[in-house]
Amino acid sequence: MNVKQTTVRERRLGITYSSPMGIWLTVFFMVPLLIIIAYSFLTKGLYGGVEFPITFDAYLQMANPNFMRVLLRTVWVTTLATALTIALALPCGYAMARSKHQTLWLGMVIVPFWTNSLIRIYAWIAILSSEGFLNEMLKTLGFIKESLPLIYNQGAVTAVLIYMYIPFAILPLFTTIDKFDFGLLEAARDLGATKPQAIFKVLMPNIRSGIITSVIFTFIPIFGAYTVPLLVGGKDSYMIGNIIVDQVTKTRNWPLASAFSLIITLISTLGVLWMMTSTARERARIKQQPLKDREDTLGPSHNGLTSAGRVS
C-alpha cells in the first residue's frame, strides 16, 4: 500500500517537473508543425498566405516530374554525403578517442562552429574557384596547367556539405568510441582475429548506437540543406530546401512549401524512430546477457568477444 502511494506521488511529481519542458515543446514545436500540416491542405492566396477551402492541390502539384527530379537528386546527394561523412568521421573519432590530447582535438572540431556558416561557405568559394587557393596551389606545384572546374557542380555541393556536417558525426562517434574498452581489441587479436576483423567484429558492433546517432545527425540537416546548394552549386544542384524557399519567396505558394516541409519532417521523424527502436533493441540484447554485475559498456563487448573467438 505504502509503496504504491509513493509511486503514484512520484509519478505526479514527474509530470510537474516535466511540464515546463512539455509546454515549451508543445508551443514552440508542435504548434508550428500543426500549422505547417494545416497550411499544406489549404488553398494558396493570390498574394501569399493561405485561404479556404481545404484541398489536396499542394500534394497534386508535387506529383510533377520537375519536382520529382529534385526530390530524387536530394535523396541521392544526401545519401552520398552522409555515407562519406561517416566514413571520414569514424577514423577521426577513433583517433581522437585514442589520443592523449582529447581536449585539443575536441576544441579543433568545435571551434569552427563559432564562425557563421555562411562565412565558411564563402571561404569555400574562395578556396575552390578557378582562381582560388586550391587551383593556384596546384598550378604552382606544376600538377595542372589549366584551372580545374572545382566549384558550381554536384561535387562541390557534396564536399562542402560533408565539411559543414562532419562535426555532428565526429562528436557522437567520439563519445561512444571513448567509452569502448580498447583492451578488447587486443584480446580479439590474441584470439587470432586480424586487425580488420577486430575492428569490424569487435569495435563496430559496440559503437553501433554512435554510428546511428551520427547518421541521423548528418542525414536530416543535409536533406533540408538550402544555402550550400544555392551558393556552391551550379545549374544542376537544386535541392528540396531551395524549392521550399522559392515557393515562399518567389511564387507565393505557401501550401506547396508546407507540403514539401512536411515531407522533410516525415523523413526525419522516420529516421529518429528507426534510431529509437534500434537503441531499444540494443538495450534488450544487453539485458539478455548472462552476466549481471557488469558495466553497460561491457555487455555488448562480451558479445563481440565471443563472435571474435568463433572466428579463430
Partner: peptide, 18 residues
Amino acid sequence: NLVKFDAEGFAKSFSLGE
C-alpha cells in the same frame, strides 16, 4: 553557357575573376 543562376554570390565570383 551559364555556370549558374545566382543572386547571392555572383558579385564575389565576379570580383575573384571566376
